[in-house]
Design a protein around this nucleic acid. Structure first.
Lengths: 233, 233
DNA sequence: CGAATAATTGAAATCAGTCAATTTGAGTGG
DNA sequence: CCACTCAAATTGACTGATTTCAATTATTCG
């Protein structure tokens, strides 16, 4: 469909290079497509648009001076991403799957001239973002790595779970390192926690990025630290 | 000035009881006063107002089922707090010092009828909140407890530092447990980190809640994990 | 002054991080 | 179609930091 040049695809490492968004990028109301690794915007870019995710998944990150990366959020279909502060984006954003986003011109400083409905939607998006960040804190703040990972899987389950007979399937769009940086863990620890959940028969892995939730109740208990409430532990 | 009844003051434990805001609470534009421990609102309360902090410090928290508490933010003078999501507050909020707030009626669902300037201010407040939560993530996500604490002190320094001759003074309005719940640590670990900073002569304590920053440069280095860059370590 | 709370300190146990090795899986080219 | 290469994921052993639990000291407020 859309040509994927090796340069655009890149590896994790090469795609970290700072690339300006293509000049032709911004046309309001015209769907924009990204290939995995391509950036939608960078931190402190002037924000001409906000974006409604139509398909695919994006990764919103901030990087510290020491090179450590914090995944602030993932952008799933339906999310509005790229809300600026003082006219500039506050995170970096790149695609982790093929992505379609709908750009919306967004001149926050000129709200009087703005379509009232769009204005209301922007406010709603901002308030939702606040609550999602707060929810993220509750997950991030859990004691045990296994609780964090379980809580993260519950989040994905509610967001992108696909029914498969009685059970639900999660297709993980992100790799272990992304999960780790979202939860404040290392990829090794994430992997061990997933292994542990599999050993407890709470989940089963088809391949590394495709899991079946075998015991949703138990998963939700583990996510809340109520390991006693389920027989799996 | 304002009478502090024992019931209102309470201890940490008693003040956790759910108390509705006083019925007389809400008068737009009329300053509302709180004593330490008093609640301004609770999670999932219908949000009639947002509040501009005029003086004092508030604590915004969310509590998990297992009783653990996450301090989402502190509300300092100048902050707008209480932005709702879907008409309801998303956190609990109580005063940790005597507080004065200015309530602003806030019917987000009726934005058309709203004063355009107020509307713009609300949007600005929401976007600022998003950035502050993201900043909080970067602090929360640091590896070492000492880095978290140093970063937290830098945050306070920039926010409520008071010049004292060449140096700066921080009057901590919150106790160790609040700091711990803000950073995802235990009070003991917070205490140890502070002790460590004192041993390195980066800070000095007048009493437990009054500290002088003796080496601001070093504090900022430690906050970013650049322990090597300063001679203190 | 005495009681209660907060803060600090100490010692032991646990959990996650680090580093290294192995396995798995996807993509490439023969 | 298979072998090869590379990256991602998993596993293992070890280290080290933080938590936990307990005891002590400091502070605040009747």
């Amino acid at each position: 469909m859309y040509a994927i040049s090796p340069a655009d695809l890149g590896t994790e490492k090469t795609s970290v290079q700072r690339r300006r968004p293509a000049r032709s990028a911004g046309a309001e109301g015209v769907t924009r497509r990204l290939t995995p690794g391509q950036h939608l915007f960078f931190e402190s870019d002037r924000a001409a648009f906000v974006y409604k995710v139509q398909s695919g998944v994006l990764r919103l990150t901030r990087t510290q001076k020491d090179g450590r990366r914090q995944v602030i959020a993932f952008g799933f279909p339906g999310d509005v991403i790229g809300l600026p502060c003082e006219g500039r984006h506050t995170t970096e954003c790149d695609a982790i799957t093929p992505v379609e986003v709908l750009p919306r011109r967004c001149d926050i400083s000129e709200p009087s001239g703005m379509d009232p409905q769009l204005r209301a939607r922007l406010m709603e998006a901002a308030l939702n973002e606040i609550r999602m960040l707060q929810d993220h804190f509750l997950i991030f703040g859990r004691r045990l790595a296994s609780e964090k990972v379980a809580a993260f899987l519950v989040l994905l389950l509610d967001r992108i779970g696909e029914p498969v007979g009685e059970l639900q399937l999660i297709r993980l769009p992100m790799n272990r390192a992304d999960i780790a940086d979202y939860l404040g863990l290392t990829p090794e620890t994430v992997s061990r926690s997933i292994t542990q959940l599999r050993a407890q028969n709470v989940i089963a892995l088809d391949d590394a990025n495709t899991m079946v939730v075998r015991d949703e109740y138990c998963l939700r208990c583990l996510a809340e630290g109520d390991a006693e409430l389920c027989a799996c532990a």
